[in-house]
């Protein structure tokens, strides 16, 4: 898919976006609170983004990294049995209490909003956070649900049926954003 795609953002640009998102998160959660707020990455591409953001947040605050969890939304999809191929279930690992703490949900690309709808259902089955914020690297439009992100790396206007994907290097330390026209 990479080879046929158009490069939208190289790894430097992705790094800058994440840095700006971390700035915005730290600004919203001033001293004392951020140690409390937790990051939850949606499987699969939201997970390395959550880890990356956690490192960025830590470097700004010079304290401990915020807790990072992973969330798989397969059991909450609205299309079980409607698609021929459903992906493998990946690990959900929320090994901390999310009651009464702010949760920042992280995904790579926001499109229809259906994944986020499922993630909200899933998260609230684990506890009752004081608030849930959404951070996405790319908001590509085409929303089908009334869902908007609070932190956005970049908004991309994609014509027609193009597919925006975030491609990771092997180490998970380096990502590019690619537009594939299918």
């Amino acid at each position: 898919m990479t080879s046929q795609g158009t490069l939208l953002f190289d790894s430097g640009a992705v790094g800058t976006m994440l840095s700006q998102m971390a700035d915005a998160i730290v600004a919203d959660f001033p001293s004392g609170d951020i140690g409390n707020a937790v990051l939850i990455g949606i499987q699969t591409n939201g997970v390395p983004l959550a880890r990356w953001l956690a490192r960025e947040i830590e470097s700004r605050r010079g304290g401990a990294e915020p807790s990072v969890g992973t969330l798989d939304i397969s059991m909450y999809r609205d299309d079980i049995g409607k698609r021929l191929v459903l992906g493998r279930i990946h690990e959900t690992d929320i090994s901390f209490d999310i009651d009464d703490v702010p949760v920042i949900l992280i995904d790579d690309v926001l499109r229809t909003g259906r994944t986020i709808r499922a993630a909200l259902d899933a998260i609230t089955d684990y506890g009752r956070p004081s608030m849930i914020k959404l951070a996405v690297l790319i908001d590509r439009g085409g929303h089908e649900f009334p869902i908007r992100a609070d932190y956005i790396g970049s908004s991309v206007d994609v014509e027609g049926g193009g597919f925006v994907s975030v491609e990771w290097s092997g180490s998970g330390e380096d990502a590019t954003v690619v537009l594939a026209t299918s």
């Binding site: 798989d72 059991m75 909450y76 079980i80 049995g81 493998r88 279930i89 990946h90 690990e91 959900t92 259902d121 089955d125 684990y126 506890g127």
Partner: peptide, 27 residues
């Protein structure tokens, strides 16, 4: 192996406070 890997995630559902997921809702 796919069934077993999937089961590992469903096992965690039973360890949650809320032990129910909407997988077969309406079925």
């Amino acid at each position: 192996r796919l069934i077993l890997d999937t089961a590992a995630e469903f096992k965690k559902v039973s360890e949650r406070r809320l032990k129910k997921v909407p997988v077969l809702r309406g079925k």
